[in-house]
Design a protein around this nucleic acid. Structure first.
Lengths: 203, 203
DNA sequence: ATGTTGTATCACTATCTGGTGACGAATCAA
DNA sequence: TTGATTCGTCACCAGATAGTGATACAACAT
């Protein structure tokens, strides 16, 4: 028998991730976690004070959300179109979320329950988007453009499709579980972002 | 004591709706439903054969999804822009979903579980969208336009925001729990749909 | 070697869940 | 009135959950 507190805590945190990735959050409970970690459940209470504490600890131990660097698109000097940059950021967001199954799982969780973990992630994400928006807002030379509404709509769509792709291969005749289908969506995201800013100029 | 089979079945079906609307699907179980209906749970097994049967019966007893008539926008002879029509359909969809809290609840359910109810709704919706798309596809004079991708993205966004608005007032700096915020989103939907078809013409 | 502290396990309670068999009582036909 | 059928209640089962008190055992300093 190994008697090492830190190592045991690590096993428990690891078990949360594994369980979350494999069975989803519906199966996530004290008993299941202890079982998965091969550890007595009483240790969860001792070391983390219960499920809420464990979840917050888990939230701090993992990189749920892509770092800004993974998503940010630096506006090229030449193609100075704001729409192009926004489109690229959104596409990067989609790619980043798609390769984080754990994040997708928690995004789904966020839709149906509120707890320590989802609250932390939600706040994190809101702050993240806020910063990002601030970065690009002053670039806009069109004051009538509703940047938050645009990105809200697009981000919402991306979230939904990422979550949904876990269990459904097709949405609205588009394959959301293949790279092929996502390329269609990505070009659509780019086109919409671009044309939104182009139209007023074209009128 | 009232002895009336049909009435009792009605009470049970009613309880499903109430429970779903009040506490969400996580609380939805045989015991909870029987409790809510003020009826012994054994009757659920007798009359509906269990939870699955009850859910399908419930699905058939309610109008989850807006009828096509509530959403369809007939293309005006003058404003023959496909983008405008699509935008209007999507806005109507958003409005229709927003005033159906039960549907929002089941859309959320669809994200995290598969069962008789969600399967029925999913199939219904997919067929519904298919018909709708078929209606408008041949109107398109731009063969390079990816109509499914456009509507998938928009519908996904609408679904997500409707679901999300149940528990979160703000998403991405946009108020998703007020008519005020949704007006912003609706104009954005209209603008995006319209400008997507305009841009190629404007080039 | 001894005792103290920290670490992990066991055993138990209370409560919830889905599911079922036996029984009580109202309704209707004879 | 009798009797069968329909409808509803009760009592229980097995399994799962969250949470807790007592206990075993390893490590380490004295």
């Amino acid at each position: 028998m190994v008697r090492n507190k830190e190592q045991t805590k690590g096993k428990i945190l690891l078990a949360v991730g594994q369980l979350l990735a494999r069975d989803g959050f519906t199966k996530l409970g004290i008993n299941a976690i202890a079982r998965e970690a091969g550890v007595d459940k009483v240790l969860i209470y001792r070391y983390f004070g219960g499920l809420p504490g464990l979840l917050t600890a888990f939230a701090e131990s993992t990189d749920f959300w892509p770092p800004a660097s993974e998503v940010v698109a630096t506006p090229e000097p030449n193609t100075d179109q704001l729409g192009t940059v926004i489109g690229e950021v959104l596409v990067n967001l989609a790619k980043a979320l798609r390769k984080r199954p754990l994040t997708a799982e928690i995004l789904a969780w966020e839709m149906v329950e509120q707890n320590e973990l989802t609250d932390i992630l939600a706040e994190l994400r809101e702050q993240w988007i806020l910063d990002l928006l601030e970065t690009y807002t002053f670039h806009s030379d069109q004051p009538q453009a509703d940047l938050p509404a645009l990105t809200a709509l697009m981000a919402a769509a991306i979230h939904y499709l990422v979550i949904r792709s876990r269990s459904t291969p097709v949405f609205n005749m588009v394959e959301i579980d293949t790279d092929r289908g996502w390329e269609r969506l990505e070009t659509m995201i780019r086109n919409l972002s671009k044309s939104y800013f182009l139209v007023s100029a074209c009128n």
